[in-house]
């Protein structure tokens, strides 16, 4: 039952095997995806035909188009990067504002508004997507009817994708930043005021640097959540498809190992961002 209590050998072996199997289950898909990015075959499946870097660097001359020459795929990576950057910056900005609002101030119905703030995390992503789709369409129609104005930018497209992802990623950012702000000693801000700083300067020079680890952590997670989002994006996407949408379409068509190559790229990106968010959490001055 515990490391400190005696356990019979067979039970230890069975338990150990179970744990090992579990982690095999956990890692197998990831390892397989990464490995088959290097398979010298046009299908990401058995048999293993030898090692190749074709799926990264082949220019299409041997009938294989590698990741670095696959224009549509690279374009969608670019779109995803753009969307993720916008979502990250927006959600961090609103997240900081929300954290100050809920941690520093009292106002009527605060508890109710806090509950409201948490809502986007418990609404299924598909539904967030369709509700924003429906609402933006209503606005477009209303503008058209009232002012004969065609609000093209509110049609499905990147702006809606950004807004859709922003709508729930902001809650996550708010929670992470609030947790850090709660640890902040208000005396530090008073000390800054006392040393001649104005209110905004005090926040800029003392509070924001204190929040930096949380901003980096929340930023990394926000970037990743946006980059990998599928459910909400699917409902709001227009003609410019972010990476997950392009990958999804390719997967349904049945694809070449170039998808493995992109996946490997995604895994490396995730690992880098994960590392960043974890390191920023440690070594933060209290």
């Amino acid at each position: 039952m515990l490391a400190s209590l005696p356990r019979s050998l067979p039970s230890r072996i069975i338990y150990g095997l179970y744990v090992a199997l579990f982690f095999l289950y956990l890692l197998a898909p990831l390892v397989v995806v990464a490995t088959f990015a290097f398979n010298d075959s046009v299908f990401p499946s058995l048999p293993w035909k030898g090692f190749t870097l074709d799926w990264f660097i082949s220019a299409g001359d041997n009938g294989r188009l590698g990741l670095f020459y696959d224009k549509p795929l690279l374009e969608s990576v670019g779109i995803s990067l753009m969307v993720a950057t916008a979502v990250t910056l927006l959600s961090l900005a609103v997240g900081v504002s929300n954290a100050f609002l809920f941690e520093r101030h009292d106002f009527p119905f605060k508890g109710f508004f806090y509950m409201l703030m948490l809502m986007p995390l418990v609404i299924p992503g598909v539904i967030l997507g369709i509700s924003i789709l429906v609402f933006s369409n209503s606005i477009v129609n209303a503008l058209d009817n009232l002012f004969l104005y065609e609000a093209e930018f509110l049609r499905p497209g990147l702006l809606l994708v950004v807004l859709g992802q922003f709508s729930f990623i902001t809650t996550m950012a708010t929670l992470v930043i609030s947790a850090r702000l709660r640890k902040f000693n208000v005396e530090l801000e008073e000390a800054a005021l006392n040393l001649g700083a104005g209110r905004l300067t005090a926040v800029r020079t003392v509070t924001l640097p204190f929040l930096k680890p949380a901003l980096i952590g929340a930023g990394a997670v926000a970037f990743l959540m946006s980059f990998e989002n599928f459910n909400t994006t699917l409902m709001l996407v227009g003609s410019d498809a972010p990476l997950t949408i392009t990958m999804y379409d390719r997967l349904r068509e049945g694809s070449t190992p170039v998808i493995n190559a992109v996946s490997l790229f995604l895994m490396v990106l995730s690992a880098a961002l994960a590392l960043m968010s974890m390191l920023s959490g440690r070594k933060a001055p209290e």
């Binding site: 040393l195 700083a197 020079t205 640097p209 930096k212």
Partner: peptide, 30 residues
């Protein structure tokens, strides 16, 4: 007169030194 405009400085009970700045940056803050 707001606190940042008063010719008064204060050593706080828990000192309130800025943990994310070096000693010199703390002293230079004002």
């Amino acid at each position: 007169v707001p606190p940042n405009r008063r010719p008064v400085n204060m050593v706080f009970q828990h000192l309130a030194l800025f943990p994310m700045m070096s000693v010199a940056e703390n002293v230079a803050y004002g």
